[in-house]
């Protein structure tokens, strides 16, 4: 049986105009696919365009050329609203800078995607997820009252709320010390295994990449052959 394709990019490119009027190609002619349940790493040095690629694949930004299909839907035919609707409840995110809303408690941050997806029992589910990531005692804490590692655990709980089909993780350990980073990675893989989500992980960490099913190497905006 042929595997279901979750993410597909065809001749994807991103070009930006510099302040002096010149243009810069951040990504050029990217072709790639990620199948359901696969864990794929995009590995590359700083400035290679890997975070930009993640943003395009998740529909958070628009490409200059080429196409992206997410969960079988062509993003290029959709407007910002339709792309958001596609993500709601089915796509999770973990960012390097956590991206928790500072005015919301840990519980409210985790419940947010469930509320956006209009799921019942959002707070009960959120509470369970926070207990799973070991923050059952910190439900009413605001992000600024938590350490970096704790904030990223809240972000993980939020990412897995609603059992997403696809999870995008952008340098999830980039802002953490080695020990905290290691705990986050263990937690991430553990939660993914339980949820069975497709995971696309952007990292510059070779060791972390090696834990994935497949590694796509990117350099100067181009995917390297054989990766």
């Amino acid at each position: 049986m042929e595997a279901t394709i979750r993410i597909a990019a065809t001749q994807l490119g991103k070009r930006v105009r510099m302040s002096d009027g010149r243009t810069l190609d951040i990504l050029t002619a990217i072709d790639m696919q990620v199948n359901a349940g696969e864990v794929v790493a995009i590995l590359g040095p700083s400035g290679s365009g890997k975070s930009t690629l993640l943003g395009l694949l998740a529909g958070l930004d628009q490409p200059s050329t080429g196409q992206v299909a997410l969960l079988g839907q062509d993003l290029s035919t959709m407007d910002e609203d339709a792309r958001a609707a596609l993500r709601a409840g089915r796509v999770g995110f973990v960012f390097q800078s956590f991206q928790l809303l500072p005015g919301m408690t840990a519980l409210e941050n985790v419940a947010l995607p469930l509320q956006i997806g209009r799921q019942r029992g959002a707070r009960v589910q959120a509470e369970r997820l926070l207990q799973e990531v070991g923050l059952g005692e910190r439900l009413s804490h605001l992000p600024r009252q938590l350490s970096g590692g704790e904030q990223q655990r809240v972000a993980l709980a939020r990412a897995f709320a609603g059992d997403p089909a696809v999870l995008f993780a952008d340098e999830p350990t980039g802002n953490l010390d080695a020990a905290s980073g290691q705990r986050i990675i263990e937690l991430l893989f553990d939660l993914r295994d339980r949820a069975g989500s497709t995971l696309l992980l952007v990292t510059h960490d070779q060791q972390l990449a090696m834990r994935c099913d497949r590694v796509l190497q990117i350099e100067a905006g181009r995917l390297q052959a054989g990766s």
Partner: peptide, 19 residues
């Protein structure tokens, strides 16, 4: 500034324009 960030995060999590 706070609003811009909230909107971006909520859009990422799938909130619609109408909402």
């Amino acid at each position: 500034d706070e609003r811009a960030r909230e909107v971006a995060v909520m859009r990422t999590l799938g909130a619609s324009r109408r909402r």
